[in-house]
Design a protein around this nucleic acid. Structure first.
Length: 374
DNA sequence: CACCCGTGGAT
DNA sequence: TATCCAAGGGT
């Protein structure tokens, strides 16, 4: 790997590239909320939020999150459910749970100080090779590579590398290359500059080569190959799953439940639902509620269906407003599932209090239908 | 290594 | 409309 990295850098004008990139970044860097200082906790939170998520999407979430959890200690002392509430809508919710767990570990094991070496910081939940490098270089100024999707694209064009950037081995190659590119004492700005260039200039489609600050040293541009790079495999199409959800409303209360601890949308709340296939959806949800919770229900009306697309999955959710066939005395308690079920107890919650719970976007859409009908 | 894990913006 | 894909990590 070391040899391969050297091969690509042989005859490459490293010093010129460093100078051009740093010069450009210092004059074109965006003013972002997490660039006001270099506090490791703030850099950490921003980097986790930015995983697979665009800057413009992150900014309002970051502001709200930092105003509620301004310090590492504040986050460590919070309840997980509240952390999830502040993450509601951002997606990839394991990021929030892992960050919360990791922050608690830093508080206990490291006295609240974020580790400044790759071994310890990379051992934290949710901190992989990229995030470790980002924190080490941006917060601590260490000459560590931080190779994200931008860097893979920029470097593949800059050095005309035709390796498939989706392969793990390629990421290792690029990390070695970046190690040799980092200017002494400038790791923070250099790494951020690489990413900023990828975000603003060296974009995935139709890169802005004519105004690119490193055009004169870019091998892809010299070869007219910028539109063919980076080389990347194709994605699979998401599969459609038919879901039926039941909105069980009685006397200002609605039945909700928490999803299992692991897997899709873990620990978020939802309206009772189940996959359907052969049977009619309204019959399916009615039978499911009886089998699962012993509740006898009747369909009141069908509400607008909800479609929600994940990266690898499409939910087509049929929604039914239901009534209890046998009214219950108290609606403030829990409804326990039959044994051997991954779900915790469902609960009757007051409609006004639904806002206290973190819902995935798919079920927020259903929640909005409830508001409309009050 | 392959697959899973969300959501919204851009083209 | 369809597809890509964005400051990735866990298993």
């Amino acid at each position: 790997m070391e040899q391969a990295a050297q091969q690509y850098l042989n005859t490459f004008p490293v010093a010129t590239f460093q100078k051009l990139l740093l010069y450009w970044f210092e004059r074109n860097m965006r003013q972002l909320p997490w660039r006001k200082d270099q506090e490791p906790y703030k850099i950490w939170v921003s980097e986790v939020m930015l995983q697979q998520t665009q800057v413009d999407t992150v900014i309002p979430y970051y502001e709200r999150f930092m105003s509620r959890f301004p310090t590492l200690e504040a986050l460590a002392e919070a309840e997980e459910e509240e952390v999830l509430k502040y993450w509601e809508g951002l997606g990839y919710y394991s990021r929030a749970r892992n960050l919360h767990q990791a922050v608690k570990e830093v508080k206990e094991r490291y006295g609240g100080r974020v580790p400044d070496n790759r071994k310890e910081i990379a051992s934290l939940k949710g901190v992989g090779p990229y995030t470790a490098g980002a924190i080490l270089s941006i917060a601590y100024g260490q000459p560590e590579p931080a190779v994200d999707g931008n860097v893979l694209r920029v470097i593949s064009r800059l050095l005309h590398i035709e390796e498939d950037i989706q392969k793990a081995k390629t990421r290792h190659l690029f990390e070695e290359i970046v190690r040799h590119l980092i200017p002494k004492g400038r790791a923070s700005y250099f790494n951020q500059g690489l990413m900023e260039l990828g975000a603003l200039v060296c974009t995935p489609k139709s890169p802005h080569c004519l105004t690119c600050p490193v055009q004169e040293v870019c091998r892809a541009y010299q070869a007219g190959m910028q539109d063919q790079l980076p080389v990347k495999g194709k994605k699979k199409k998401p599969k459609t799953v038919k879901i039926v959800a039941g909105v069980l409303m009685e006397k200002g209360h609605v039945l909700i439940r928490q999803r299992p601890d692991n897997g899709l949308l873990a620990k978020l709340y939802e309206f009772p639902n189940v996959q359907w296939d052969d049977q009619e959806p309204d019959e399916t949800i009615s039978r499911y509620l009886f089998d699962m919770y012993g509740l006898r229900t009747a369909t009141v009306e069908q509400w607008p269906s909800v479609q929600h697309t994940f990266t690898h999955l499409i939910w087509e959710i049929s929604v039914y407003r239901l009534h209890l066939a046998e009214p219950l005395d108290k609606l403030n308690g829990f409804v326990f599932p039959q044994e051997e079920q991954p779900f915790s107890a469902a609960r009757w919650e007051r409609i006004e209090d639904l806002e206290r719970y973190p819902f995935p976007v798919s079920h927020q859409k259903i929640k909005k239908e409830i508001w409309k009908r009050l």
